[in-house]
Structure formats: structure tokens, C-alpha cells
Simulated scan of single mutants.
Amino acid sequence: MSNLPEIYISQHDYQRLEALLDDFANDDANTLALEDELARANVVPTSKLPDDVVCMNARVQFQIQESGKVFEKRLCFPQDRKNETDDISVLSAVGSSLLGLRVGDVMPWQHNGKALTVVVQAVEQPEED
């Protein structure tokens, strides 16, 4: 795990994600991956979260290194996912891998048993309520 990039999560997102995990009391691989990410996260006050960090409801542009494909999606809670084209759930394998990364970070993740690598290219923070 020492090869993994540092991740940053706002206190607000951290609390909401912990509540989400409490609601999904199961041991599937994606839930466990999110638990692992939260366990290693640097939790910071929302006002101190750097602008280039992938947080909940942020739009993130990322590339899958192995295929070269580039995606732009909003990282969201499963219940807020509107469609597959625009949104990616934090409970998906790549969604939990993106959480807390900064622009330029590289993160390994698993898809259908295959090791892949995601690279964060850009982050657009959500509008404040």
C-alpha cells in the first residue's frame, strides 16, 4: 500500500461516506475498497480541501492508462446516480479509487479481476449549496 498516492477527503464527505457504509452493511469488494480508502484518507475541514482533489459530486476527467480511454464523470453517491454516461458511483471500483486523488495522481484498481490504472487529469469542484 505504500505505493498508493495520498488521498484527501473533506470532513463533510467523510461523515456522509461512513453513513453510506453503515447502510451497506455487506462485504462486497467495492464496499471493502471504499472502507480501505477511508481508512487511509487524510480527513481535512471542507474549507481546507485543495481545489484539485476529487471529492463527492466533483466532475473528474480521468484516463484508464491501459486503454488510453478518457472519461469525464461526476463522482456521486449511489442514490444520486442519474445515468451511466454522466455519473460514477463511489461504490464502483473506479469510483472508490478516484476518491481523494489529486490531479496527476495515478491509482491502481481492479475491474473484473483485471488490474488497471487510473490517472486523474482534471477536477471541477461542485457548486456550493
Rank of each mutant, 00 (worst) to 15 (best):
N112H: 08
A25V: 09
D51N: 15
M56I: 15
R59I: 08
F24K: 05
A93E: 08
D51G: 14
W109E: 04
V94W: 01
D105P: 06
P108N: 11
L98T: 06
R81A: 15
F77A: 06
Q65H: 09
E37V: 13
H12L: 02
E128W: 09
Q125F: 00
A93F: 01
P45W: 00
L91G: 09
S96C: 15
S96A: 15
G68Q: 09
M1S: 13
N83K: 04
L4A: 03
E127H: 10
V106W: 01
E124A: 08
R16N: 12
Q11Y: 00
L101Q: 03
D87Y: 07
C76N: 07
E84L: 09
E127L: 11
E84K: 10
R40P: 01
D105L: 07
D86N: 15
V54D: 02
A39D: 15
E35Q: 15
G104H: 03
N57C: 11
Q15D: 10
L91K: 10
N26V: 07
S96T: 11
R40A: 02
T31C: 07
A41F: 02
P126D: 09
R16L: 14
N26W: 07
L21S: 11
E18D: 11
K69D: 15
R40I: 08
Q15V: 00
I9A: 08
E18H: 00
L98M: 12
S96M: 07
Q65K: 14
K48W: 01
Q63G: 05
Q63C: 12
K114C: 14
M1R: 08
K69P: 00
E72A: 08
R102T: 08
A39G: 07
L49H: 07
V54E: 01
L91T: 13
G100P: 04
D86P: 05
P50H: 05
L75C: 10
A122T: 01
D86C: 11
L38H: 01
I7L: 08
K48C: 10
D28F: 01
S47L: 10
A25I: 05
H12A: 13
N112F: 03
Q11N: 11
V120S: 02
V123Y: 02
T31L: 04
K114V: 15
E128R: 14
V90S: 05
L17K: 06
V106T: 13
I64T: 13
L49Y: 06
V118A: 13
A19S: 14
S96P: 07
A93D: 12
F71Q: 04
L34D: 03
C76W: 02
I9F: 05
T31N: 12
Q110A: 03
I64R: 09
A58C: 15
V54H: 01
V70Y: 04
V43Y: 01
D129K: 05
G95Y: 02
P50Q: 09
V119P: 01
H111M: 11
M107Y: 11
R16M: 11
K73H: 14
E84S: 13
K73S: 13
